[in-house]
Amino acid sequence: MSTETPPAGDAWTVRKVLDWTIDYLKKQGSPSPRLDAEVLLAHSRGCQRIQLYTQYEDVLTDSVRQKMRDLVKRRAAAEPVAYLVGHKEFYSLTFEVGREVLIPRPETELLVMEAVRLIAGSPQPQLLELGVGSGCISVAIATQAPHATIVGVEIHPATLEFAQRNVARHQVGNRVELRLGDLWEPLRAGERFDWIVSNPPYVATDEIAGLSADVQKHEPHRALDGGADGLDIIRRIAQGASAHLKPGGGLLVEFSPEQASAIMEVFQTDPAGYQEVEIIPDLSGQPRVLRARWPG
C-alpha cells in the first residue's frame, strides 16, 4: 500500500491491504496490529469488521486506499485507534470519543457490573457519577438498570459535550442528567444518592511520562493525573461523599491495582466512618474497584 500501484498482476484487495497493514503496524510496535488494521479498514470502507472477511477479494478504490493510508500513518505515530475512528465500544455499546475524553477501558466495565448488581433490588435507585467523561459508565448503568436515575458531573465543558451526545445516542436522557462543575459543586442543597460511582484520575503525576505512547501523547492528562500519589481526587471523594449519600448508601471507586492498600486506608481512616470497605478484583484477579458504605 506504500506504492502507487501494486505489483504486476496484483491488486490492492481487502486481503492484501490487511496483510500489509498488519505487518507494518507490527513493525511499528502496535500491541494489537490485526485488530487495529481491521478497525481502520472497516472505517475507511464504511462497513462492519465482519464484512471484511466476506469481501476479502474486493479491490479498494483509490479514495478508500488514501483514507486508509492516512489513518495507518497516524496510527503508526501512536494515535489511538478510537480517536482515529471516533468511537469506542464499552459494555457492548458504542460511544463517541475524541481527544477531549479518556478512551473507555474494558476494566472499567467492572464498575458498571457492580453498580447494576447492587441496585438490582432497589425500586428507584438514585446514583451520582463523578467525572463523567464520555458518559460510558452512566449510560451503561442506565441501559442495564431502567429503574435507576443518574446524575453525572463533569468539570470540563468540552468533555461534557461528548457525554451529552452519548446520552442522546443511547436514548437515556430521561434518566441521566448531566451537570457541569467540580465534584460536589453542581449538586443541589440536600441532594443525596444511594450510590456514588467514579473512575477518577488516579495516575501519579510523575508516572504519566512513562505511560504508553498512545496514552501519554494523545489522551487528556487531566483525566489521568491524580497528583503526587495518584489519590488526590480519591481523597476529595472520600472526604465529601458522606454529605451526599443517603444513610446506608455507598461508593464504588476505580483505582490502579498497586494503590489497593493506600485507598483502603483512605476510606477506613476517614472521619465519615465508612463501613464494609472492600476491594473488588477484576476478571484477571487484580484489585480494581473499592466498595464502601456510609452508615449515616
Rank of each mutant, 00 (worst) to 15 (best):
I119T: 14
A120L: 06
G121S: 13
S122P: 05
S122G: 03
P125I: 06
Q126T: 15
Q126N: 10
L127S: 03
L128K: 12
L128E: 06
V132M: 04
G133N: 14
G133R: 13
C136D: 02
I137Y: 00
I137R: 11
I137Q: 07
V139N: 00
V139T: 12
A140R: 06
A140W: 02
I141C: 00
I141L: 03
I141K: 07
T143H: 08
T143V: 15
A145G: 15
P146R: 00
P146K: 00
H147L: 10
A148S: 13
T149Y: 08
I150D: 00
I150P: 01
G152C: 11
V153M: 02
I155M: 09
I155G: 05
I155E: 13
I155L: 11
H156Y: 08
H156N: 09
H156C: 09
P157D: 08
T159S: 15
T159R: 06
E161M: 09
E161V: 08
F162E: 01
A163Q: 07
Q164M: 08
Q164A: 08
R165Y: 04
R165D: 06
R165I: 07
R165Q: 11
N166Q: 11
V167I: 11
R169H: 14
H170C: 01
H170R: 02
V172M: 01
V172C: 00
G173S: 08
N174S: 13
V176P: 02
V176W: 11
E177L: 14
L178C: 01
L180E: 14
L180F: 04
L180M: 04
G181L: 02
D182V: 10
W184T: 03
W184S: 05
W184K: 02
P186G: 10
L187Y: 10
L187Q: 03
L187C: 01
R188T: 11
R188A: 15
A189E: 13
A189P: 07
E191N: 03
